[in-house]
Simulated assay, not measured.
Amino acid sequence: MLTLIETAVVRLEQQAKLEQAPPPVTLNVKALRCLGNTVGITHQLNMREAKPQKAANKLRDETIPQLRKLIEQNDIDSYDERAKSVCSDFRILVERCVEKILFNDVLQRFRRSVETKGKIGALAKITAGDCTFIDDLMTRYSAFEHSQPDELPAVLPNIDDLQADVEELATWISNFEKRAAV
C-alpha cells in the first residue's frame, strides 16, 4: 500500500512542477512498530526504508564504528547479533540500489506499474562492471537475508571487509548518480 501512495504523491509532485505550483501534498512516512504488547509505536524509518545513499552513509559513518566499539569491548554476543542485523540490512540496501539506483525506479517491488517516463534513459548508464559489482554483493550477503542450511551456516564477514563493502557501495552510488547516460 505504501508503494501505491508513494507513486500517487510522485505523480502529484510532477504535475505541480509542470504547473509551476507547490505540490498539493507532501509525504512524511513513519514506521509503526510493536514492542511487547504495545502496538502502534511510531518511529523514524529504518535502514531498509531510507534512500540508498543516506542508508549507505549511515552504515559507514554510524553503524560500522558501533560494531568496532563492540569488538573493542570484547562483547562477542552483542557483536554477533548486531553484525548479523547489519549484514541483513546491507543486503536489503543492495536490493534497493538495484531498484532505485541501477533501474532508476523504473521497476519497483510491490508497485503495479512500470514507470518509464523520464526514467528509462538512465538505464543506459549501466555497465557490465555495475552488474558484476551488485551481483557480487548480492551473492555474498544473501545468507543474511535468506534461510541457510544448518550444515552450512552463514559466517559473518570480517569487520574490515564489511566496512570496505559499505564504503565501496556508498562511493558507487555517488558515482553512478553523477554518471552521464551513454
Rank of each mutant, 00 (worst) to 15 (best):
M1S: 08
M1G: 04
L2E: 04
L2S: 01
I5E: 01
E6F: 00
A16R: 06
K17M: 12
K17A: 15
E19S: 13
Q20R: 14
A21G: 08
A21Y: 08
V25E: 04
N28C: 11
V29S: 11
K30V: 13
K30I: 10
L32H: 08
L32T: 11
R33L: 10
C34N: 14
L35F: 13
I41F: 04
I41N: 06
Q44T: 09
R48I: 04
A50I: 13
P52F: 08
A55S: 10
A55Y: 03
A55E: 04
N57H: 10
L59D: 03
R60Y: 06
D61K: 13
D61T: 12
D61L: 13
E62D: 14
I64E: 05
L67I: 11
L67Q: 10
L67G: 10
R68T: 10
L70T: 11
I71Y: 07
I71A: 11
E72K: 15
N74L: 08
D75R: 06
D77Q: 12
S78D: 10
Y79L: 15
Y79M: 09
D80R: 15
E81P: 00
R82V: 09
V86P: 07
C87H: 08
F90C: 07
C97N: 06
E99A: 08
E99C: 02
L102T: 01
F103P: 00
L107W: 07
R109E: 02
R109T: 01
R112Y: 03
E115K: 02
T116H: 00
K117L: 02
G118H: 06
K119F: 01
I120W: 05
G121S: 13
G121Y: 11
G121F: 10
G121T: 11
A122R: 12
T127E: 08
A128E: 15
G129Y: 09
G129N: 15
C131M: 15
I134N: 07
D136S: 15
M138T: 12
Y141H: 09
Y141K: 08
Y141R: 08
Y141D: 08
S142W: 02
F144M: 07
E145Q: 04
S147Y: 11
S147F: 11
P149L: 05
P153A: 05
L156Q: 05
N158S: 03
I159F: 02
D160F: 05
D160T: 11
D161W: 00
L162K: 03
A164V: 04
A164D: 12
D165A: 09
D165S: 08
F176L: 03
E177M: 05
R179P: 02
A181V: 03
V182W: 01
